[in-house]
Design a protein around this nucleic acid. Sequence first.
DNA 1: TTCGGAAAATAAACAACATTCAATTAGGAT
DNA 2: ATCCTAATTGAATGTTGTTTATTTTCCGAA
Lengths: 215, 215
Amino acid sequence: MAILKPSERRYQRTHEAILEAARQIIHEEGVSALSMRAIAQRIDYSAAGLYEYFASKEEIIETICRQGHRRLKDGMVRVSTNLPIREYLRETGLAYIEFAVQNPDFFLLMFTKAPPLPPGELNPKELQQRLESELLDENSAFLVLFKGIQRGIDEGVLPVRPGLDVMEMALGAWSLVHGLAMLRVTFLQSFQTDFAMIERETLRAFYAGLTAGAG
Amino acid sequence: MAILKPSERRYQRTHEAILEAARQIIHEEGVSALSMRAIAQRIDYSAAGLYEYFASKEEIIETICRQGHRRLKDGMVRVSTNLPIREYLRETGLAYIEFAVQNPDFFLLMFTKAPPLPPGELNPKELQQRLESELLDENSAFLVLFKGIQRGIDEGVLPVRPGLDVMEMALGAWSLVHGLAMLRVTFLQSFQTDFAMIERETLRAFYAGLTAGAG
DNA sequence: TTCGGAAAATAAACAACATTCAATTAGGAT
DNA sequence: ATCCTAATTGAATGTTGTTTATTTTCCGAA
């Protein structure tokens, strides 16, 4: 099944070249420099040709964002699960932030639009189910946090109470690392301070507050 | 000195009408619908006429963002300082999130670009000083958090340790509420859950962890 | 009231943008 | 070689922010 006709290989090669050019432009010149013409120029195409491979600029962006989420997740998964739960959660959160710092424009692009969903008219029930499975997708960074929190609960370190189950704690943890990452690449991007210290201490405080339970 | 010539009053009226139209468009049709022509049409002007009042679209956006930061701060200041420190900090954080939920597009606009700074070439020392005073500006939402944390320290509830002074704690607190707000208006915008509960519990945990000190 | 210069407003044009389409080129099978 | 299809392009459309030349409006001085 991996055997492709030459024409198909050519197609796939161009397909990937477009995405690679788009990633390069974002990385080298920022997302404001990302235009169909710019992409085309990088791979010696005309702008119109790109529409043979992608329906729109939006579709190109969605594709590289999806890959970006995978890369973000990969960075978090790289943290050793042999670490004690406390350090594991900390390092996982720091990996999230590290990705943002290393790819600021990309990170911003990934997280300033709502997740792409089929625009079909589905009832609230279906939509909710869809969103939940998107959130806990194989390639979702959130899933890593979710599993980490779950492990903390399983080990008896994180207490569950009514209204504050795995999902709620995981969303809280996500918000925390997301806020740290977001502010650092936007408002604080030129600000000089010991971010590493702040991040560690903030994560420590949150973890301590979670383990302490109701107070 | 409040006496203006008719021409000046006319000028100011149009100046304000432009900003008001821009705000309306963002609120009613989203930021993607904000164009110079759209603004002009709302106030029965030609697009070129706007340049008599603002140097660029960017300048219009910067102006309404500055006002937005003031409104955000106003919402936080409205929290009674008579509340015990713990509740005061919680309610202040929730006010931040509430603003984001009530003005999602606007909030996103305010916080997805770096703060506008004079593009002059100033040395790192000056830049840092500039950023710090911007952060602690009279109209900065961060200042409210900063003062709140300071109060907690003064009351002896929040312990200071080397490397984790007011500024660091305040930046951590800001990150937390910012992350909660940000995710809620982007990735989780269609997601149904008890956000109020998550927000309260997450803030509670962070506060508990701060008061607990090193663990 | 009238006139002239300044201020305010506009239409038209420009360059860049995403996207579409008719027309052309290239590849692979018969 | 020939035909069909897929790949590629140049030109055109409509929208964007912005600039320029031109016209209109305003307002004080004569």
